[in-house]
Design a protein around this nucleic acid. Structure first.
Lengths: 211, 211
DNA sequence: AAATGTTTTAAACACCAGTATCACACAAGC
DNA sequence: GCTTGTGTGATACTGGTGTTTAAAACATTT
């Protein structure tokens, strides 16, 4: 009579937790909300993930790792292919942004929820979130910064990093607001349209480093 | 023996709540933390502000109103002075960003905490925060969007709003990360340097609407 | 078929949050 | 002088949180 089967419970927890976290923030969601929506027992979270924090880490780190692996892969390939000469700016920006905005190559159900959650992480006040960003994201961003740097040699180190920080901030902010673009634009733009976001980000970011 | 005096309590609550909210987020801070740091009684919050939510509203709305009043004032003056011909893009962007990044003309102690708090609001998941933004900020942003629009007539309505949204997102993200720039840039940029943030944002934003 | 390891369940626990209560201090006013 | 009203103070209350427990159910293996 019990509905299901072997290892479904952790998957259900992850999926429902992710979408709830995306909408209400990490400490805006209780384990009871998660487990009741997932149709599993409250204790299942502590059994399968030890902790609420560990559950959060799992969700965030999974997504970030997949995206960053794709990014580093593609950038490394592009650099190898061009054999020392700089990768074009548009290509760098595309490699940086596309895995974040679109599903990417991983087969998991990357969707609007995970985008919104990732966009939210960057202003999440919880210490462990900052720690995840520092270890998982910072190195990747530094690497892309170096690649982009070659296209803006006339900027001072400070000005370049300010510029780069603004670009990255715009990207993350876009991720967090994709779901609400219609209301923010009085109905002109569509909600959950990462393709438009990506193409606009590309031209936007390229201009930020022009001269 | 009681330390103090007449109407100091509300002010102490506001100041300490603001800096705590800026650091740990709205529901990352308890009233007990606020009142103990402020050196006032726990019940003082409910006495002077009815609610925790009302306290948050008060803090956020105060700051937003002051900034937006300055913005609208200056934009209206510039438009009147130019008598119908478009206000230069740089000037619009400066009017939009300066009151947010710098102290502005209001005499209150606008500081790093309030910047960080305002930068955080935009990704705060609490419903009443979104409501404050919709009523307090959205109209102002629409107004500035219209002013900027005249400098990017060739963009489609959708593309313009995407571009504008990215620029505004970068601005807000910068507000939220000003306090942490040193760590994010491996020591190259300084922490809490709104002047650098502003000047870099200005050239950055201007280029976003070029052609 | 019995035994073993794994997962699920319901209930309880300890804790901390926001809020409400009620007594007290102390000023100004008739 | 006494009262009234405003602010303060310590404390209690109610509800929700993450977590733990121990028993039951299940699957798997021998």
């Amino acid at each position: 009579m019990a509905i299901e089967t072997s290892g479904e419970t952790p998957r259900k927890i992850l999926a429902n937790a992710e979408s709830l976290f995306a909408e209400y923030g990490l400490n805006g969601v209780s384990l009871r909300q998660i487990t009741s929506r997932a149709g599993v027992n409250l204790a299942a979270v502590n059994y399968h993930y030890y902790d609420k924090e560990a559950l959060c880490r799992e969700i965030i780190t999974n997504r970030l790792r997949a995206i960053n692996a794709t990014r580093l892969d593609e950038l490394t390939q592009a650099e190898a292919r061009l054999d020392g000469s700089p990768v074009p700016l548009d290509e760098i920006l595309g490699i940086m942004a596309r895995p974040l905005f679109l599903s990417g190559s991983d087969p998991s159900n990357y969707n609007a929820s995970s985008r919104r959650l990732l966009g939210r992480i960057f202003s999440e006040p919880l210490p462990f979130a900052a720690e995840i960003l520092a270890t998982e994201l910072q190195p990747v961003m530094t690497r892309f910064g170096q690649a982009i740097r070659r296209h803006a040699p006339s900027l001072s180190p400070q000005d370049f990093l300010w510029r780069y920080s603004l670009v990255v901030g715009a990207m993350h902010h876009a991720m967090a607001t994709l779901h609400d673009m219609k209301a923010r634009t009085n109905g002109v733009c569509r909600n959950d349209d990462p393709q438009s976001a990506l193409s606009n980000f590309m031209v936007f970011a390229a201009q930020a480093f022009a001269c």
